[in-house]
Structure formats: C-alpha cells, structure tokens
Design a protein around this nucleic acid. Structure first.
Lengths: 358, 358
DNA sequence: ATAGCATACTAAACCGATTTAGCGCATACT
DNA sequence: AGTATGCGCTAAATCGGTTTAGTATGCTAT
C-alpha cells in the first residue's frame, strides 16, 4: 500500500530545524517578519520601505543564506507550483521521451513535478490521483492512462483519455498515421500485410486499429484476420512482438509487409522474422510506430511512424500551466491534435517481385 | 531561470479551497479538530476516546471524503515524505532504469519524489539541490552527478561521487567489470583491442579506465594509444560512438576487439564498423557496458557488461530511507559496491584466425 | 492648530494540519 | 472527606511563511 506510514521505523528523527527562517532573519535585522517578507518578495506593498532598509534586508538574506520554506509558502498561498505526472511505467522509450518534454517546460516555469508509475494496476490508477492531490499538486498530466474520477484539478492527457469533461487530450492524428504507413507500404508494392495490434489496455489500441482499417479500405487493401495479432502482457520488451510474430509466421499465411503497434514490438518482430529465415527488408518490410531513440539504431534502421513525443510532453506542460493560471471558469481546449510523420529508414523496401509485376 | 515567478501570468486563480478540511469535518461532528486528528492518525493519545466516537469520526471522514492536506502535515511534522532525484537527463537507458528501481521502493514506503535533470549544465547542478531542499525533501539521490556543496540532507549517489563526507556511494565493482570484459575477449583469442572511453564529465570515466588498464596489464594485453578514443559531446545518442569509431578505423591500426564505454556507444560503433565493411562479430567483436533494455535486441545482440541498474536504484532508495529514519548521528555506509556480470550475446566471437593459431 | 497625507513600519490573522498540556467530571480508594 | 485515577475530550501552541489592516511619526497645507 503506497501510503505514508503513520509511525515509520523506530527512530523518527527530528530533522535539524531549517537553519535560517524568516523569523530568525527578522530578529537578526531587528525588523518584523512582515517587512522582511515584503521586501524579499518584491511585493508592491514594499514601496514605502526605503531603499536603504531594503538593501540591508537583502544583504542579510544573502549573507545568512536565507531560503524561504516552500511548504509554508505553498500552504499560505494555496499555490504549490507542483504538478503530478502519471505514467504506466518509467520505461525506455515512450514515457521517457514524453517526460523529458514535460520536464523541460515545467522546470523552466519554476514548477516541480512528482512522477508515479502504475504498471497498469487499477488500484494504483485510482489511488495516485488522490494521493497527488493530497500533496497539493495544481494539475495532473496522465500519459497513456485513463482516470475515471476523483480529479479536481486541471488534467491533461497524453494519448489516453476520451471525452471526459475537465480533461484536455493531446492526441495523435491517427488517421494520418495509419495512412502514412500503409501508403508507404503500398507504394512499395506490398499487398499482403500483417498487423500487430496493441495490448487491450493501451488506450491507443482501439483508435489506431480503426484508423488502420479505414486507411486499408481507402487503399483497397484487404486485411486478413489470420494476419492480425495482438500484443499481450504488460512488459514493454520486444519479447512481446517477438512472440506474436512467431504466431504470425506459424499461420503459414504469406505476407511481405508488417505494421507493428510500436517500435519495441517491431524490434521483436524483426528478430522473429530473421530467425525464421525471412530477411528484413528484402523478404518482409517492417514499419514501427513512435520513433523512439533506438529505432534509428536498429539494424536495419527502423522505418517508423514518428510521434512527436517530446513535443507532446512540452505541449502537455504548456497547456496544463495555462489552465492552472487561467481564471476558474475559463474555456480550455478539449483536444489538441498533433501530426505524425513517416520516417523512412532501412526496414522497408519494394515488395519481393513487385518491380517485375509493375 | 528555474525559479517560481512571484506574480505569474495575469489571472492568478485562487484554487477552490480544499473541499473538506479538518476544521470543517470537526465542525460537522461537533468535536474539536484535535479529537478528529488523533483518531484519524490512530495516535496512541486517542486511546481515551471511546470506540463509538472513533467509529463516528471515521465514518464521517469516509463519507465526506476527508483527505488531510499533506502540505500542512509536512509543515507541522517536519517530515515531507519526499525526496529529490537528480539525473543528468531523462533518457532512455541508464537513468530510466535506475529511476524505475528508485520509484519501486520509494512509493512502496509512502514517499514521493521530485525528478530534475540538469543536462550537465553546472549552474543547474548547483541550483537544484538547493531548490529541492527548499521544497523540504528529506534526502537526495544523485545519479551520475557530483554535487560540490550545499547538501544538508542525506545524499546517496549512484555512480558519481567520490569520498565526500555525508554521501553514500553506490558504485560498481569496476575492476571486476573490466576484468570480465577483457578476460572474455582474450579467451576468444583477441589481442588487438580498441577502447572507447567515456566523456570527460562522466564520473565513471576515470575509474573505469584505470580498471581497464589494470585488467589489461594483468592479462598481458598492451593498450595502444592510437586504439583509444574518447566520447565527446553531451548527447546520449549512438552517434557519438559512431563518430569516434570512425576515427579508430581511420587510424589504420588493426584491431579485432572493441570495448565500448556503454551500450549506446557500442551500438554506434557497430554501425560504423559495418559501414566500413567490418562484420560484427566475425571481423570485430564488440563489448558494450550497462546492459540497457535494447542491448538484447540489437542485431547482433550485444555482448555487454551488465550493471544491475534497477537494483542500484532500489538499493539507493533503501539506503536513503534508512539514513533518513536513522538517528541524526548514526553511522551510515560510505560506499556500497555492486557486482557486474558479463552477458554474452552475439556481438563477440573468436578472433579471426585464432582457432588456427591455437 | 489641526486635518491630511506620506512614510516606515508592525500586529495579527491565516493556511491546515499535529500535538501537548490540561480541564471537568465521575468513580474508586484511603 | 479528601485525593487519586481514568475518561473524554478541548484549548492553544506550533510549523514558517504571506498578507491585510493599522499605527506611530513627521511633514505639509489650510
């Protein structure tokens, strides 16, 4: 249970009182706490305090190395300058990239953030937003995670939520993403295509699959049921893609193109294909999704549909801070759509025999 | 400047007062705040309060969905149950693995943590520990980051610090790590070896290099200056390893084994070798370092010296919490050594011609 | 002379909890 | 009768700041 223990361990140590408090600083100066506080915060109310006194106060603060306690300040001001970030896991790949975008913007603006990962355990998904709000976060960013209720602060979701009032969704243009991948493969002459769907619990799975079907239809490609597999399990290792690709191969149904749910599974797929004696890309072209850092350094380098993950993190942070500082009933965006792009690398090429066919 | 703006934006919204406070709950019950607090926290002092009243209090708390404000609690108790984690960057690979270990243990124990990344900018390395302490963190974990001063709370460093009083270092047994790699290569018959050293700023660079030299000497291997290159630049992309390996190849000096500073650079190295027409592992065996998740899914799968990064994160968190709850002047470990292991995969094999030679 | 005003501050409330000392009453004991 | 003990609570201090209302003083204007 992730809950502060009321009486932890044997020795609860009383940490040394903060060395220099506002009170001690004020006493040192022979002034009131109020005066010191006003000056230090450059409050407009300090305008009647003469420059000389202000200088003395600031100098003393510097010399004694005074640093106001943020806990106290937050309590009084009802502003914590803190937000909560909820991710499925702190993985290589997806979450790390989004987080680095979030961090960039937040820290620049003077906010700090808590990170929690729920590893798809539903009791944690319920509990964490509450725990974070107890810690006075001013807003939440959910990465690929859907909350059902209990969120009273502004919430921005990076791919995950649907139409819940109060949340701003940052979503990829999935139609375009699917079209990019399938157009690329068809242009290369591929007709027999296999697909790896995402796990049931991943919020992108359904939308993405719908988009794939639409794009396929638009391009006149028929999707064969036996060439569709679905990732299972919570790990984020290529192992999952490896497993389902074996299934795909076992079906005996021929295919020359493979569109994976993400780069991680594409990497596993490549391995399985190779073990089965299929060369990538000569025999099978593989397209991944996300463009995580290591996609470019696979062998062969992975062709993939790029999600601007870092930017999505930045946008999430920006939007959240805007919502936090906006007046209570101000309108806010329900959805922000970001565009994918196709990154063509070495894992795709013309379909076997297609140059003759054409 | 990462510093809270005193008057941010135009509309500073006064967030809705916390819906139900201790005060309102107590009023609702017609009891004092003290009584309610004692019962809710299961304080021993509540023993004189009859069960019936306790039940009423707890029931009301549940019904009104009372959740104590942690800010207020922390201020009063001088315990924030919060720690700060400082990393060079929120990358795929190293930091992500360590962080996931840290998170695992911390959240289990009811602690939350702030993450900050400094991207090797020295003013941030100085500023962040102070900023975190202003936010009342009870301890710090520094990942591959050396603080010079200003840390007044327990500090645990995961590879990075040296001999500073007050810090617990979690360090890899570098001698053993170097020995593992070089013994493996020599057993495979390699004599001509190239090395990629870490960046100047990486705290592991120096120790690791010393260990490599010692191990080489012990094995009777001569290290040629022209076969030693050093990573440069702050990015954590394989690009860096790619660049320096080109230099290595340009020197014209022959080599059949390559020991890289980390997996990321090893991946770049493989790419450079392959572009130069050298097959891996047939012509050159490559050993990486770290065993990041994607190492296993490279092609060829990377042989590497594994650092137990996740475990190091767990140990760091455990040690830190122990130090936090220990009495003020209790002794604490200065150094905790963790053991590397060699993970043999497909990027190393017997040296060209060595089977005939033997 | 005195109202009016600016200057240079301070007192005290407040944020939302925790925690110590102690009060009033009933019962038990000496 | 007087004192001790236990019960069932409460008052009030406290954590370390922020912020509003106000006070004392001196000066100017009428």
């Amino acid at each position: 249970m992730p809950r502060p223990k009321s009486g932890p361990a044997s020795h609860v140590r009383k940490p040394a009182r903060q060395s220099v408090s506002l009170r001690s600083l004020a006493e040192h100066l022979g002034l009131s706490q109020a005066a010191v506080s006003l000056v230090i915060n450059r409050s407009p109310a300090a305008k009647s305090i003469p420059q000389r006194t202000q200088d003395l106060i600031r100098q003393a603060a510097r010399e004694l190395n005074y640093r106001p306690n943020q806990l106290a300040r937050s309590l009084r001001q009802q502003r914590s300058y803190t937000i909560g970030v909820v991710v499925p896991e702190i993985s290589e790949g997806y979450a790390a990239l989004v987080m680095s975008g979030i961090e960039d913007h937040l820290l620049e603006e003077g906010y700090f953030y808590f990170v929690v990962s729920h590893r798809h355990r539903s009791e944690l998904i319920e509990e964490y937003p509450l725990l974070l709000q107890q810690r006075a976060v001013e807003g939440l960013i959910a990465v690929d995670t859907a909350f059902t209720e209990g969120v009273q602060v502004p919430l921005v979701a990076v791919s995950g939520h649907r139409d819940v009032p109060g949340v701003t969704n940052i979503v990829l243009n999935h139609s375009r993403a699917a079209a990019l991948a399938l157009e690329h493969l068809t242009k290369l002459g591929h007709r027999e295509m296999a697909f790896i769907k995402g796990q049931e619990f991943s919020s992108d799975t359904a939308v993405r699959w719908d988009s794939v079907r639409e794009a396929a239809e638009a391009l006149g490609i028929q999707i064969k049921e036996c060439l569709v597999v679905q990732l299972e399990g919570e790990s984020s290792s290529p192992e999952l893609g490896y497993q389902v690709t074996k299934k795909l191969l076992a079906s005996g149904e021929p295919f020359t193109g493979l569109f994976a749910f993400n780069d991680i599974s594409a990497i596993g797929a490549v391995q399985a294909l190779r073990e089965a004696g299929r060369r990538v890309p000569e025999d099978v072209s593989v397209v991944g999704f996300d463009d995580i850092q290591s996609a470019a350094f696979q062998n062969p380098a992975l062709t993939t549909v790029r999600q601007p993950l870092r930017e999505m993190g930045v946008i999430a942070a920006e939007t959240l801070l805007q919502r936090i500082t906006a007046p209570p009933n101000a309108p806010y965006p329900k959805e922000i759509i970001v565009e994918p792009s196709l990154v063509v690398r070495a894992s795709t090429t013309t379909a076997p025999g297609s140059s003759r066919d054409a």
